[in-house]
Design a protein around this nucleic acid. Structure first.
Lengths: 114, 114
DNA sequence: GATATACGCAACCACAAGGTTGCATATGAT
DNA sequence: ATCATATGCAACCTTGTGGTTGCGTATATC
């Protein structure tokens, strides 16, 4: 028996920016790159993108604001790293919504069989 | 041992619109409602939103374009239903990115221990 | 010290996105 | 037939977002 509680609106408002950050092709590409190759510098990430460095930097800041990446300066370059915990948050949301849906289906089924 | 293959850019380009659709608070609220209470009509969903019916309709169409909901007219109302399969797609993406990240960490660790 | 590299910051621009009002249309209820 | 309900559609507005160019600054490298 699933114990899915309804998602609080607070958690929902928190999750939207997360998905929004993942909702851009260039940013998703960056996340994918960071997850596949590990930490990388800004110019390193620029190599894979088809936009200017400044655009990539903006995207990285959006990801950072969403908590999906963190960065630190190393010498003259800035190294970006994936924050897997935040990704898990997103997964958790989807899991809970899915669980809710399953529970709703269950209730509907029971109602019909009534 | 995880068998995480790198995500093809085709799959990535496919996933971004999905996350983008989930990246709006109002839309996420709608998805949450549909998952918690099952299928509902447009005006039904409007009750929980703080925007006009037309705005809600727009959001529903965005969700439909992303494949996250489907709808059918029933009498004078239109009933919207969650497409759980599409939600699973999003989860799958996050899973694979996470697996990639784990694999990358593993390699880094092995490299350091070298 | 001169030079190339890597980045930060600001101004600016075009367009998509979210939202609204207004009006038309179809369907259920009386 | 009449009236209320539920929706569809279009025009319009405002802001946010993704992108650019230009310039300044810090850090390696020679």
């Amino acid at each position: 028996m699933s114990s899915a509680r309804p998602l609080s609106s607070a958690r929902l408002a928190d999750a939207a920016p997360l998905f929004a950050a993942l909702g851009d092709p260039t940013r998703l590409r960056i996340v994918n790159l960071l997850s596949a190759s590990g930490p990388a510098s800004t110019s390193n990430l620029c190599g894979a993108a088809s936009v200017t460095r400044q655009a990539v930097t903006k995207h990285l800041h959006v990801l950072a604001d969403a908590g999906l990446v963190s960065s630190a300066r190393r010498g003259r370059e800035r190294i970006w790293e994936l924050r897997a915990a935040r990704l898990d948050k997103a997964r958790e949301y989807l899991d809970r919504i899915d669980a809710q849906w399953d529970a709703a289906l269950e209730r509907l089924k029971a109602f019909v069989e009534d």
